[in-house]
Amino acid sequence: MPASPDTSSPGLTSAASGLPVHVPLAVQTRGDVVEGVHYGSVAATSADGSLAWEAGDASRPFYPRSALKPLQAVALVRAGLDVPSELLALAAASHSGGPEHRDGARRILALHGLDVAALANTTDLPYGVAEREAWLRSGGTADQLCQNCSGKHAAMAGVCTLNGWSVEGYLDPEHPLQRLVAETVAELTGEAPAAWTTDGCGTPLPAVSLAGMARAYGRLARAAANDGANGTPGAEAAVARAMSAHTEMVAGEGRDVARLMRLVPGAVAKDGFEGVQLVGLSDGRAIAVKISDGGDRARMPVAVRALAALGLPEAAPGGALAELSATPVLGGGRPVGTFTALDAAFPES
């Protein structure tokens, strides 16, 4: 029998006491045996932003990672960002690094009299598999435009020029731009961030709750459906409409969040590293998913099952989102099991 962990260590005891209370959300079966289990938490909010139901712990702070980008884009629009709709979608994107994405980031910079030297994000290869392979075949190497956050960074640098703020240092948490982002995040989520750190691309990253993030996405999607019907839309509506209209700029061809937004009219969807998925619906309802082990494969099947529990017709069995709800497990090239969300974790729709 393996030795029990030494819980006498103060560090281990402290870490264990702070663990989220996640629950089983998705399983992989091979034959009649459960081969793998993903734990996590889900929050579902009503049209008014209140918590409709939760699985696991919807109130514990977590890092939304790139799912924060639409909220950051709202702050940018409020600060004067005025670019074509496809470029606004790119500002909220974790793009695949294709030519249209790299060129789009350059266009945002050029519209504000800037070039790539203004970017402060990290370098990387394209995020999309096909895009990465094509880039490498052409002799490309990791750079800032390929990095999946380059649209956001180009827009952040551009907004600084509009407001007379220093472009240099735009990632500093005390920079006027980042203070505005922090205020916007608190407003849209309805809560003050519990902590701050730095995201992979270098931007300040708040810890908020799943319920708060779901509330924010419901607000964005509802604004797109209602705001600006007879005039210029507000910032929330502008961002949500841009994302829904240009799904290929938000992600890339073949990416699941792009497919979901095409299949569910008016939906606003965004993924984030470490197993995060947000979806806002046009009536103001929303779901937020966090997979505890950070595994990407569970993110979308769990999100679709949560949408089914909200009563979304497209997420019902056999609905338009069926292709995103489960995947076959192969053995010898033929299906021998499934990977799917665990029904017991969700309320009846």
Rank of each mutant, 00 (worst) to 15 (best):
N230D: 15
V167E: 03
G151L: 04
L136I: 15
A240G: 09
R305N: 13
E86T: 11
R179F: 04
G49E: 04
D283G: 03
R241I: 00
A155R: 03
L162C: 07
R255Q: 15
R255I: 15
W196Y: 00
E54P: 00
D293M: 05
M243D: 00
P193N: 05
G280N: 07
G294W: 00
S94F: 04
S138K: 12
H246W: 10
E187P: 02
N226Q: 15
A298C: 11
A134Q: 13
G319T: 01
E133W: 08
S8Q: 13
H246I: 02
G284N: 03
L342M: 03
V27N: 00
A194P: 01
A194T: 04
P173F: 12
G294A: 04
T232S: 13
L109I: 12
R241Y: 04
L88E: 09
S59V: 10
D343F: 02
A186D: 00
F273R: 09
D6Q: 09
G139A: 09
V304K: 06
G311F: 04
A91N: 10
V257M: 13
S166E: 14
S59F: 01
D283C: 03
A192F: 01
L177N: 02
D32V: 13
P206T: 08
G202S: 07
H22R: 14
D199C: 08
V329S: 02
K270I: 13
A194D: 09
G228E: 01
L278E: 11
L310D: 14
V116K: 06
A245Q: 05
G280V: 12
A269T: 13
T327I: 01
Y63C: 06
S96N: 14
R60K: 07
A16D: 08
A303V: 12
N148L: 11
R137P: 05
S41R: 05
S8H: 11
G151N: 07
G319I: 01
I287M: 07
D343A: 15
P301V: 13
L324C: 04
L260V: 14
L119N: 07
I287H: 05
S94K: 07
E191P: 08
G104I: 01
P206M: 12
A130E: 15
D172P: 01
P99T: 14
A67W: 06
G104Y: 08
